[in-house]
Design a protein around this nucleic acid. Structure first.
Lengths: 160, 160
DNA sequence: GGCAGATAGTTGCATATGAAACCATCCCGG
DNA sequence: CCGGGATGGTTTCATATGCAACTATCTGCC
């Protein structure tokens, strides 16, 4: 760790050169990846959940009457990925999937008591960890950050 | 697209509930993923590059005398992934990999003229796209955003 | 000099993922 | 009604990835 340079020697700027540290997509990705890695370790080690499963559970805690399709749109995950995550959660008895009375194609997803119990342990841990992460930001900085991210997401919809 | 609700009905908050839209790791990941998806489409369609390959190229444009190890530490990518990305770039004649005179274990990476030419077309496109993305942010908001992200990264090092 | 451990990089293997094909159900126009 | 799409969801298949084992080289210590 102390052997190599922590920061690269930067070549002169200019056309055909890209300063990645000023390139938002790169910075955002690096940060998100590192955060994701940390949380993933937490879910995986203690609860044997992968990211997709965690997201499904989190949405189930967040809003009632969920379906796989909704999870796809909310989380931007592929429907195959969601399907497999839900399957794993059903197999573990954390979630129920029942065909909707209205539309037999749709399956309503719900937490089982076991799933709710697991979440009631996991969520506080995740929130504590997040609190520690953002401890260096003031309340205003935190608000501005979420705000800027919201603007970027809306701009993405416009561009894409 | 217009059929489903864009925003989920949110259940009551409380213990055991998690509002994902206020949960920074989730928000950050979703934003980074969406941006990444867009850029990936751009690299892939027009230049037949995947993300790992693009990152290696970008670092090569950014600083001279690079090695696979440095790419690993800078980008947080697995060394196998970097190795395969470099291999692909060498096969395509975009990058050279020569054993270092000092240490036969390390390989110096350099752009070929072809690689530099490709970057000189790709980088402006990426920058234009980024400019469009952040067009909704004021200069101050943009600076604050990068600043907050820097703080989070430093805090991550402390925590992890 | 020479062995023990570290380090750069590659390769083999198991798994996670996305795209596309597929199935079942629903909806709509005639 | 009923036939052609659309839609929710699953499965199949190819690929990308991470981990671990491995090779080759280097470094330090005796």
């Amino acid at each position: 760790m102390s052997s190599g340079e922590e920061h690269p020697r930067v070549a002169q700027q200019g056309p055909g050169r890209l300063d990645l540290n000023q390139f938002l997509p790169y910075r955002l990705n690096r940060l998100a990846d590192r955060i994701s890695d940390e949380l993933e370790r937490m879910y995986a080690q203690r609860y044997d959940l992968n990211v997709a499963q965690w997201r499904v559970l989190a949405w189930l805690s967040h809003c009632d009457d969920l379906t796989a399709k909704k999870v796809c749109t909310y989380t931007n995950m592929d429907k195959a990925r969601v399907s497999r995550a839900v399957q794993a959660l059903v197999d573990r008895g954390l979630v129920t999937r029942t065909p909707s009375a209205r539309d037999q194609r749709v399956h309503d997803l719900h937490l089982t008591p076991e799933g709710a119990a697991l979440l009631s342990r996991l969520i506080p841990e995740a929130q504590d960890w997040e609190a520690e992460l953002v401890a260096t930001l003031s309340a205003g900085e935190y608000r501005d950050l979420l705000n800027a991210m919201g603007k970027l997401e809306r701009q993405l919809e416009r561009i894409g």
